[in-house]
């Protein structure tokens, strides 16, 4: 299957939730509504002709000018070499929430925790939503564009 066919199949399955798509660019992507991300990725993973069974990474991007946060899922396939797709979902910056895909990919667990840690995106249904890299009592999410560097941490000056 070409990427174009995959996207057509996806649109026929989820007509309302695919907001935008570009399967033929340098970086093939689709933009979806965040509420249905679990079903869409489940379909992509479990359809034997598409087989996007390898989760490359989950990224959060903070667009503070537009007041939203973007979550990007990069999926690829082990069986089919040309199957690579990026899935974008845009969230509200004040309270970013999106369903977790931990039930589909084991790899998603740590990626989602890291995204929560650094950008503050809440993944609903995640089994263990804690900070991952920073200490538990750290304030703020450092990769947000308006993040202020802390003055001190436990009595140790920052600068």
């Amino acid at each position: 299957m070409t990427l174009n066919e995959i996207v057509q199949k996806l649109i026929s399955k989820f007509p309302d939730n695919i907001l935008d798509s570009n399967p033929e660019g340098v970086e093939p992507f689709i933009k979806v509504a965040p509420s249905d991300i679990f079903d869409i990725i489940k379909f992509l993973k479990e359809d034997p002709e598409i087989d996007l069974s390898f989760l490359n990474l989950i990224t959060g991007v903070d667009w503070n000018q537009d007041n939203r946060i973007e979550v990007v899922y990069h999926l690829s396939s082990v069986a089919f070499q040309s199957h690579k797709l990026a899935i974008h979902a845009f969230l509200d910056r004040k309270a970013p929430r999106i369903p977790s895909i931990c039930g589909l990919y084991g790899a998603a667990n740590w990626h989602e925790r890291e995204t929560y840690d650094l950008l503050g995106v809440e993944f609903e249904g995640h089994p263990d939503m804690r900070r991952m890299l920073l200490p538990d009592d750290w304030e703020g999410h450092p990769l947000r564009k308006d993040y202020q560097f802390p003055e001190e941490y436990h009595g140790i000056k920052w600068a």
Partner: peptide, 11 residues
Amino acid sequence: GYHVVKGVDRY
């Protein structure tokens, strides 16, 4: 580096 101690001699 928001999380890096600027010198271990602070500890």
